[in-house]
Design a protein around this nucleic acid. Structure first.
Lengths: 186, 186
DNA sequence: GTCCGTAGTGTCAGTCACCGACATTAACAC
DNA sequence: GTGTTAATGTCGGTGACTGACACTACGGAC
């Protein structure tokens, strides 16, 4: 019953999240996820390529935000400040999805297989950013270095932000950039 | 026949490398690797936890180098310059293992599953470095940021070095640090 | 030399992630 | 109603990975 297809996908996401939280990633089978979602195991694999990917829908939104944010910065702006501005543009979206992000980070942090996937996603994102900077006219190796470094700073800021609940993310971002500037400038 | 155990492990590494190069990672089964190495599939999994790990012995050496290099830098040196010095100490070792590294990078770059593992290894290494810096007395978040950034710079330098055969790695490292200093200082 | 503990291996049976091929059904257009 | 299409169900299979148990080569104790 092709009841729009999107419904099944959403139910699978929900079921997977619940089961992973209840019993841990390793103790859950894809068949169980499918059963709770009311579909067949085969249907699960039509919506997601493997057992892990069901948890990373948020990451897809993130790549969208990054692309939009960089597109919103004028091409004349040099790579480093352009990325810096783009990060400021993304911060509110990140802050909004903070709760879901936290819950997810908890599962991911405790299971190696998911940390692997997360690390890979991050690497892909850095590559995407570098590519976008090149399209804006940056030299390839400068783009690479800027993407790597600034994304690293953002990732760091997110971590310290998660460790200090209630504080605004923007402050952590500013602080991290200032810290890096002092370190790398000398 | 426990013919020292190390021999079987080495044969497995060799067999896996050959087969992966010949037919590609996905087209090779662990049973085939074991067969070429003259052991059982079960024995393969006694030496390596999964199909991918057999390719990452070099990474283990790398973590050793990093630990030693950081230990060789006096504790009085601040985190950023300490890591900077440690990288200079590692460069020769990296340069020596350049050939093997290139061959491996080629396989890894072309298969997503291996890129995932590589990304995870890199993240673990950054975490290790941050931990070592903390042991030296650095504040946790500064250690995190320094490890992230400087390791990123090194990774970037290695990439440009691979793209420019024949040039010394140290030059790429110096160049990348200079570039970052100019970017992040402003 | 015999005995014995240990480490490395073989064997077997099983679970589970994942995939190809084909049949089926709901919804929608006409 | 009929045809089309997208989503699903069904079936069978492959291959990564694991637990349990038996076996065999080696080293040392005596």
């Amino acid at each position: 019953m092709p009841r729009s297809g999107k419904e099944a996908r959403a139910r699978l996401e929900q079921a997977a999240l619940e089961l992973y939280l209840e019993h841990g990633f390793d103790a859950v089978t894809t068949a169980e996820i499918a059963a709770r979602a009311g579909v067949t195991e085969r249907t699960y694999f039509r919506h997601f390529p493997d057992k892990r990917e069901v948890l990373f829908e948020g990451e897809r939104r993130l790549t969208g935000w990054v692309t939009e944010a960089l597109a919103a910065v004028p091409d004349e702006v040099a790579p480093w400040p352009a990325m810096r501005r783009a990060i400021d543009l993304i911060v509110p979206s990140l802050e909004e999805s903070g709760r879901a992000g936290n819950r997810l980070a908890a599962i991911v942090a405790t299971t190696p297989a998911l940390r692997e996937r997360a690390a890979a996603k991050e690497a892909n994102l850095v590559a995407l950013v570098a590519g976008l900077l090149v399209e804006r006219g940056a030299p390839a190796d400068e783009a690479d270095l800027v993407a790597l470094t600034e994304w690293g700073v953002l990732a760091h800021a997110i971590r310290t932000w998660r460790a200090a609940p209630g504080t605004p993310l923007q402050r952590h971002v500013d602080r991290a950039f200032a810290l890096l500037g002092g370190l790398a400038g000398a």
